[in-house]
Structures are given as structure tokens and as C-alpha cells.
Design a binder for these strands. Structure first.
Length: 435
RNA sequence: GACCCCAUCGUCUAGCCCGGUUCAGGACAUCGCCCUUUCACGGCGACGGCGCCGGUUCAAAUCCGGCUGGGGUCGCCA
């Protein structure tokens, strides 16, 4: 492939807001297509609206793209290119294709019909445009979107424009500008929009959620990317889980769906859980630890070994890292508070049985889960009750909740002293009620 | 209103381009059952779909047209 025919695509975010789900997917499809065809992926920051563009947004956009695992071959800022845009506007004025009016420069867009060849949708034919003129330089002398976009795409040698479907109606105007300027018209690929569960456009309350917020909510970057990939594209063979690395070898923009896809947080959660379970214990620990530290969920003097054992308890049962916040509390609590829903278990006084359990536990030297379990079962047998009769109150005693990880694994992690102390507390609780 | 896009289970999709192998396959969700000390995981199963009407054809989810429905755009925002 020679240099001129090399694919060059771009993602052109406007730093007037954070990178959200829709933008991230457009970015992803561009990046993937470039990597698949060994092309160039350009980032162009569309910061022509000086009022609304904020550095904070820009930082988040760049940070999120990197966090998701993508990189760019070059980056440009439109705000630094105003002179170039004006220069081309002058050319259009000279050639009679544009004119000044009310302090702005207008481009004439008269035509009979215009055809664009879309990689995703095939031919799209426009009969007429609602407006016969288009502002290309605003009266404050800054370039208007459709114009700066065309100039920059042409000058940056972008030969394939992949963007959201909401830009379809801009395309005929832009094609007209390419032609008026004598630039070669690029290929276009308009990808479908991501819809909110309600049906409408992904929006404020739902999709406007920034990628950063998803990270905050405990989602792994691989999971977000994987899920986004599934929205409008399929790797085939009934596959659901696919890494960025694998996807970049088989992705094809022409295989992207034409239909808008509804965003499903449930499916994202499932994908996230798949990735968490797919991590090695060491990877998970490092991820979880960082997440918990960032969210101030760990005691300052947390013991490393202990934390690792705790996290091991939950790796297979959380959907997001944020779930950990709710679960690990009892592992660090000084004293257990019994949750309201444990009431029916607490009602049943088993202090005699629990006392025996405590006595036997005191004699267990190596408090490993296997040893704990066999001792536990022996006690149950001796008392002539099913193990589960003792399991439930024990869990409540240790965790304050009705549900949690395996009881014996939990006991091993907490350690003999804490286990005995917490069981004793439950016995006291019962004793107190009966005095 | 004008212009444009789209249409397979509740949701994401495979199949559609190259019509028969599909009384449509997978996943999420939901509901059962199994496993089991709870929850989750895992296993098994159930539920559930080609929007409608015409046409082409021996044969249509697949091709064509219309209708209906959904979506997008009509800013000196991007």
C-alpha cells in the first residue's frame, strides 16, 4: 500500500463536554478500522467554540481514550488553524462561490441532487437542502463547523470519515464544499446512534455519563470497550467476549449495523463480570486495591496479606469493583451491625448450640477452612441438626448479613479470634433478650 | 412541516448482499430445575422475534414497492 492510498481516519471530539458512550464508540470504530488496515488514526480537537471549550473536558477526553486502550498517531487543535480556514474562505469568495453578508461569510449551496456513497449504508441521495446558503465564517471571524471540518479533513488527508449518523444531514453541504474547493471527497461511514433505554437519543440522564464516571462506577476499561463493540458490530460465531487486540484484526466498518442500538446497563455489567472473573487473582487484587484506595474504602493501615485474602473471597461474585464497597465492610469492621433483614434468623435462639461451636473452635489450632468446616460439621452432627441450621446464624454473626461468600472461607479469612469474638457477641445478644 | 436514516425475541445480535440447508441460532434480562451453607458462578430447560400489506418466484427473514412505526437533521453549537 503506498502512502497516498493509506487509510487515514480521524475522531473529532469537541471539548465542550466529556467523552461519553456514543463518542467513545465512534472513536473506537475509527481506531479499530485504522489499526485493521494499518492506517493512521488522527485526533482532531474541535475547539472552535472558544466560549464553551474547557480544558477540563479536553483532559478527560484524552485521558479516557488512553484508558480505554487506544492511541493516536497525531493530534491537531482546530483553534490553532483559524487563519487557514479564513484563507480558504477568501478563495471561495474570489471564485464567487461565497460572499460576505452581515459580517459573516456565506457559502452558496445550490444543487439539484447529490449522492454520497456510505460504507455503512450504501448510496444516500439528497434531493434538496432546506437552506440555500451556509455560514462558513461567523461574524466574529471564527470558522463554522461544517467549513472547518471540511478544510481540516481535506488538509489532513482524511480519506474516510467515520462519524455518528446525526451527521448524515451535514454531509451533502460538506461534499459541496469539497467540490467547490477542488478537494477530493473522502469516503463516509455513518455509524448508528446509541439509544437510551427509553428509546430516544442517548442523553443527559443516561448516556451523557462520561467514561470517567463509568470507571468511577467500577467498570473495567476492557469491559466497556468490549460492550461498545457489541453495539452495532458482531465478531460472529456467537462470540460475545473479544479483546481490543483481537477485534482490531477482524473489524470491518462495512460490517457495522445500520440500526440504532439501545444501551443496556445489565449487559455491560455482565460483560464487566466476565472480565473480572477472567483476571488472575493478582491482577484483580491490583485493580481492586487501586479502586478501593481511590474511593477511600480501606483503612489507612490495611494489612496487605489480609486485604488479598479478603479480595479473593469476592472475586467470583462481584459485577463491578464498586460492588466491593458494599461487600468488604464486615472484614474491616470493629463490631458487626446486624442488618434488618437478618431479623428472622436472629429470632431463633441457638445460644446453646453456638456455645458448643465456640468451645470446639477454641481447640482448633490451624484455622484453615477445611479444618473449620470439619469441626463445624462434627458439632452439627453431635447436636443432631443439619449444618445449615448453624450456618445461617453463623453468617449473620460474622458478617451481619444473610448473604455472602462461603462461610468457612470467610472464617479462615477473618481468623480464629474474630470468629470466636463475633459468635460470642451473637450468643450475648440472645442471652440479653432472655434475661 | 421539509430532507434523510432505520425496521429479526423486552434488549444486543447471527442469518439478509449471493432466495431453498432456518417451522430463524447465540447472548443479556426474566422464570423454573440441578449443584449448594446463603448469594453469585456453573449446568440444564422454559418464555420470547422475522412490524403490516402487496408484488416477484416452484420457493422470501432474505429481492422489489407501499404503508405503519421508530430515529436523526433543519443554530453565525459541534
Amino acid at each position: 500500500m503506498n502512502k497516498d492510498s493509506q487509510l487515514r481516519v480521524r475522531f473529532a471530539p469537541s471539548p465542550t463536554g466529556y467523552l461519553h458512550i456514543g463518542g467513545a464508540r465512534t472513536c473506537l470504530f475509527n481506531w479499530l478500522y485504522a489499526r485493521k488496515l494499518s492506517g493512521q488514526f488522527i485526533l482532531r480537537i474541535e475547539d472552535t467554540d472558544l466560549e464553551r471549550s474547557k480544558k477540563e473536558y479536553l483532559d478527560e477526553i484524552l485521558e479516557s481514550i488512553k484508558w480505554l486502550g487506544m492511541n493516536w498517531d497525531d493530534i491537531f487543535y482546530q483553534s490553532k488553524r483559524f487563519d487557514i480556514h479564513r484563507e480558504y474562505a477568501e478563495k471561495l469568495i474570489s471564485s464567487g462561490k461565497a460572499y460576505r453578508k452581515e459580517g459573516a461569510v456565506f457559502f452558496k449551496c445550490d444543487f439539484e441532487s447529490i449522492e454520497i456513497d456510505d460504507l455503512v449504508r450504501g448510496k444516500i441521495i439528497f434531493k434538496e437542502l432546506p437552506k440555500k446558503e451556509e455560514v462558513i465564517i461567523k461574524s466574529d471571524n471564527s470558522p463554522a463547523y461544517n467549513f472547518s471540518c471540511v478544510i481540516d479533513d481535506a488538509l489532513m488527508k482524511i480519506n474516510c470519515v467515520i462519524r455518528g449518523e446525526d451527521h448524515i444531514s451535514n454531509t451533502p453541504k460538506q461534499v459541496l464544499m469539497y467540490q467547490a474547493l477542488g478537494f477530493e471527497v473522502p469516503k463516509f461511514a455513518h455509524v448508528p446512534l446509541i439509544l437510551s433505554p427509553g428509546g430516544g437519543r442517548l442523553s443527559k440522564r443516561f448516556g451523557a455519563t462520561s467514561i470517567r464516571e463509568y470507571k468511577q462506577a467500577g467498570y473495567l476499561s476492557e469491559a466497556i470497550v468490549n460492550y461498545l463493540l457489541l453495539l452495532g458490530w458482531s465478531p460472529g460465531n456467537n462470540r460475545e467476549i473479544i479483546s481490543l487486540d483481537e477485534a482490531k484484526d477482524i473489524f470491518d466498518i462495512a460490517k457495522v449495523n445500520k440500526t440504532g442500538a439501545v444501551f443496556s446497563i445489565d449487559k455491560l455489567k455482565w460483560v464487566n463480570a466476565e472480565y473480572i472473573r477472567g483476571k488472575t487473582l493478582a491482577e484483580f487484587i491490583s485493580l481492586a486495591r487501586q479502586y478501593l484506595e481511590e474511593n477511600n474504602c480501606l483503612p489507612p493501615d490495611v494489612d496487605n496479606d489480609y486485604l488479598e485474602k479478603v479480595l479473593n473471597l469476592f472475586k467470583e461474585r462481584v459485577y463491578t469493583l464498586a460492588d466491593l464497597k458494599d461487600w468488604i465492610g464486615f472484614c474491616f469492621a470493629k463490631e458487626i451491625q446486624y442488618a434488618p433483614e437478618t431479623e428472622n434468623i436472629l429470632e431463633n435462639n441457638l445460644s446453646k448450640e453456638m456455645k458448643l461451636l465456640i468451645e470446639r473452635f477454641k481447640a482448633v489450632d490451624d484455622f484453615k477452612s477445611e479444618n473449620v468446616e470439619s469441626e463445624f460439621r462434627k458439632v452439627a452432627e453431635e447436636l443432631g441438626v443439619k449444618a445449615k441450621i448453624l450456618v445461617h446464624p453463623s453468617r449473620v454473626a460474622l458478617t451481619g448479613k444473610k448473604i455472602g461468600p462461603g462461610l468457612f472461607e470467610t472464617m479462615e479469612v477473618l481468623g480464629k479470634d474474630k470468629v470466636i469474638e463475633r459468635l460470642q457477641k451473637l450468643v450475648n445478644h440472645w442471652g440479653g433478650e432472655h434475661v
